[in-house]
Amino acid sequence: MTIEELKSNIKWWESKRWIYNVAVGLFGIFAIYDGLSRGEYFWTLDDTIGIIVWGIGANIFYSLGILLELFDWYYLKNKVGIKKLRIIFFIIGLLFSCFWTLWCGWLYFAKPYLW
């Protein structure tokens, strides 16, 4: 892999990041809306900080796609061929992150006494 291919791979992943962020954000908004509409809940600063930390964490996990490709290229000499499977990894990661966000949001509002 040359520097140009490396830049191309990073550009591909970074061009999809906005799709990932919008999708995860919409699922998070739905979970929050659903949780707040079920009863009386008082929004706190901790909730806002939690959403920011969740977004940063989600983007760190998104970056694993790029790192996985680099790992395959540098250490495995493209034996796995992750570049051919990156759209599958993107879709699986996107779906997992969206449903994980939704599930955790529902759990947060369903069991507030746990937090």
Rank of each mutant, 00 (worst) to 15 (best):
W115Y: 14
I49Y: 10
I92V: 15
I29K: 04
I49C: 03
E5T: 08
L94W: 02
G35E: 03
E69N: 12
L94N: 00
G39S: 08
K83E: 13
Y62P: 05
W106K: 10
L94F: 04
R17F: 06
I29H: 05
G81P: 11
A58I: 11
L67G: 10
M1Y: 13
M1G: 13
T2M: 06
N9K: 11
F89T: 03
R38P: 08
N21I: 15
G28T: 02
W43V: 15
D47N: 13
E40Q: 04
I60R: 04
K83L: 07
L67H: 03
I32H: 10
Y74N: 12
S97C: 07
Y41P: 09
W103N: 10
Y62R: 02
W100C: 06
K111W: 11
I29A: 15
I82R: 04
L107G: 02
R17I: 13
K11W: 08
F89K: 01
W12T: 03
F96Y: 09
L76R: 14
I32E: 01
N21H: 03
I29C: 11
L6Y: 10
V24Q: 00
F99E: 02
N59Q: 07
F90Y: 11
F109Q: 09
V53Q: 05
M1D: 12
G28K: 03
L68P: 05
F99D: 01
G105Q: 08
R38T: 11
G57M: 09
W43D: 01
G50W: 08
K7T: 05
